[in-house]
Design a protein around this nucleic acid. Structure first.
Length: 475
DNA sequence: ATCTAACATC
């Protein structure tokens, strides 16, 4: 029973173990590992710790399978140090134990430790290599990843997929596609990675034909592949394509997956159809925080604060806890329309709730809101007193506000900060130079312009894409 | 039996 539950994540697996123990049945060697796997996939640290205690009481502490499952449970629950302790206390270790530890270090970017263990361990299998390479692609560099990939004794589809995903994340679409074409057995995961590669690197137009190729190759899309396709349709902003994707999803029977429905909301919002997004939203029986966030973010982007506030109150009534993204949406809506009082009160509410993770975006919205309203000193105070390091975009919002209100003195201070953080951004130099010019301070304007030339930063031209551009490229 | 790859709200 427990093993069955461990195959598809569910709290019931843990419950079966607990019931067995309540009735004082003695577990065999196989029970704890599967129950711990349930805890690992669910990130149920509390339950995992209880099973850990039970395991010690029952005297399983020397069982390699039990210990390895414990170590993996701690890794999955983000307790890398506890996992390390379990690992160090193991008298007998299997290749799986070593691999789980390498995977844990890789997952948290502890590449030196991962590498040390990798070289120290007596036997390595393909999973070990993959775990190490995955860490390299995420936290190291692609050269290192490629080196290990080239040197591993055998590769499986996971190895190839990790590499494709790595090149995608580093923006190398050509290299990713090259590896994809060289793979011999392409499963749906590899296709999905390629779809997201195009989406994340701003080439959603490539996805249409690519997806057709995938269907032609007789590879059936799953929910995750559809999610990737949905973001491509969202980027393309084509209602025609959105409808087509939605029909595909209906045909596959994925309409009960909340993640899919949430992505459909965002897709229609991106395409400018609040009505269709709202329609999908209303039909979701078990709306979660992401459903509300997608609606709030979408309405905020369309400059519709009254619906944003309405959705927030609906959300509160439905007992769904707002998170940091909810507030980014609300504050964006306020900033967009210059609703200072509302913005301040939601910002205060967020601080009062206490559990919301504060992000620089929250402060950027507030600085923008206060700055545009002419409260430059308030905005400056907020930025200097914020508990996080202000990002360039936050200072940028303040610089923009200085320009609107013609405050050269503050602008100089802010611009100096920006030149430090992002010396390569031509926009900051341009704003300051234009401000001097507006005030007829020609000498100062010239100094900024020459500083710009000296640092070899030039203003780049803006460009935009239309739906036709993408289709022409696809054809 | 226990370890490795993809996705949605910013």
């Amino acid at each position: 029973m427990i093993r069955g539950y461990s195959r598809c994540p569910s709290r019931d697996g843990i419950a079966v173990y607990a019931r067995m123990r309540q009735q004082l049945f003695l577990p065999g060697d196989y029970d704890a590992p599967f129950a711990l796997k349930c805890c690992a996939t669910l990130k149920a640290l509390f339950e995992g710790e209880q099973i850990h205690a039970d395991v010690l009481k029952l005297g399983f502490e020397c069982n390699v399978f039990v210990q390895t499952a414990l170590l993996d449970m701690y890794v999955k629950c983000s307790r890398i140090e506890t996992a390390e302790q379990v690992f160090n206390n193991m008298r007998v270790k299997s290749v799986v134990s070593w691999t789980a530890m390498v995977a844990g270090y890789s997952k948290y970017g502890l590449l030196d430790k991962a590498k040390r263990l990798f070289h120290e361990m007596p036997i390595r299998n393909v999973v070990t290599w993959n775990a190490l390479i995955d860490g390299q692609t995420r936290f190291g560099d692609m050269e290192a990843a490629q080196w290990y990939f080239n040197h591993m004794p055998q590769r499986n589809t996971v190895s190839w997929t990790i590499m494709i995903s790595g090149y995608s994340k580093s923006g190398n679409v050509e290299k990713a596609r090259m590896l994809f074409d060289r793979m011999n057995s392409r499963e749906v995961v590899a296709w999905t990675v390629m779809i997201s590669c195009y989406v994340e690197n701003g080439e959603p137009g490539e996805v249409i034909n690519f997806f057709r190729e995938m269907l032609a190759a007789d590879v059936k899309p799953d929910e995750v592949a559809m999610l990737a396709l949905l973001s491509a349709a969202a980027q393309l902003r084509s209602m025609h394509l959105c409808s087509w994707v939605e029909n595909c999803i209906n045909a596959c029977g994925f309409k009960s997956d909340i993640r899919i429905l949430n992505a459909i909301i965002s897709m229609y919002m991106e395409c400018g159809s609040i009505e269709r997004a709202f329609d999908v939203f209303q039909k979701i029986p078990n709306k979660d925080v992401i459903s509300y966030n997608s609606m709030i973010t979408g309405c905020a982007a369309h400059g519709d604060p009254s619906n944003v506030f309405h959705l927030f109150s609906l959300m509160t009534r439905a007992n769904i806890q707002p998170n940091s993204i909810t507030f980014i949406g609300i504050l964006t809506a306020c900033a967009h329309r210059g609703l200072v009082a509302e913005g301040m009160s939601y910002f205060k509410l967020m601080l009062d709730l206490g559990y919301v993770e504060l992000k620089s975006e929250h402060y950027a919205c507030m600085v923008d809101l206060l700055g545009r309203a002419g409260e430059l000193d308030e905005a400056y105070k907020l930025i200097t007193e914020m508990p996080l390091k202000a990002k360039a975009s936050t200072w940028g919002a303040l610089l923009g506000a200085c320009r609107i209100h013609g405050n050269v003195k503050l602008a100089e201070m802010v611009a100096r900060k920006l030149f430090e953080i992002e010396p390569e951004n031509p926009g900051n130099y341009a704003v300051l130079a234009n401000m001097y010019a507006e005030k007829r301070m020609w000498d100062e304007a010239a100094i900024v312009r020459s500083a710009m030339e000296k640092k070899k930063v030039f203003k780049t031209h803006g460009s935009s894409w239309t739906e036709e551009d993408y289709f022409n490229k696809a054809l």
